[in-house]
């Protein structure tokens, strides 16, 4: 009998949502590849967050140094993923977030939702990204090229 619902996972390589430093394109490729064995999946939606080189009062952001209240964040991520999987009837959802330094142009967040049809995966992906941005206890310190830092503020 075909497996209907794949057990959701927080991440790809291990049980934590956090990876040290940038998320590599290989990590993302591997996550997509891994799901090919679940042949009841018809749609993957992915969100990739990349560190933007903002200019703040003629200072350029060269990297973001991420810190988290890890235990709370892991717990919260699990809640959010499990709620999203149930609400949108997903086959699976994955979340990876960077900790520590991520340079401008590198990837700091990866979210994947997979379902039978496109509508639920697309909507679930947007929903999960918003919840992550609002509710995960993670903070970004924007490191300025000429020295010093500014605390990142998330926009709506």
């Amino acid at each position: 009998m075909p497996q209907r619902v794949l057990k959701f996972s927080k991440t790809m390589p291990d049980s934590s949502i956090f990876v040290h430093g940038a998320i590599s394109a290989d990590d993302i490729a591997n996550a997509i590849q891994r799901l090919s064995e679940f042949q009841n999946i018809g749609a993957h939606s992915i969100f990739i967050g990349q560190v933007r080189s903002d200019a703040i009062e003629d200072q350029i952001v060269s990297a973001i140094d991420y810190a988290a209240y890890k235990e709370m964040a892991e717990q919260k991520a699990l809640e959010l993923i499990s709620e999203t999987v149930q609400t949108y009837q997903l086959n699976t959802a994955m979340v990876q977030h960077s900790l520590g330094m991520v340079k401008s142009g590198e990837i700091c967040l990866f979210v994947l939702t997979a379902s039978r049809h496109r509508k639920s995966s697309l909507e679930a992906c947007a929903y999960l990204v918003e919840r992550i941005k609002k509710e995960l206890p993670v903070w970004g310190k924007e490191i300025l090229e000429k020295g010093g830092h500014i605390w990142k503020k998330n926009t709506e």
Binding site: Y69, C108, V129, I132, L136, W151, K153, N154
Partner: peptide, 10 residues
């Protein structure tokens, strides 16, 4: 106890 300013992940 933890003091949490507004989150800014992602």
């Amino acid at each position: 106890i933890a003091l949490l300013p507004p989150f800014s992940g992602g």
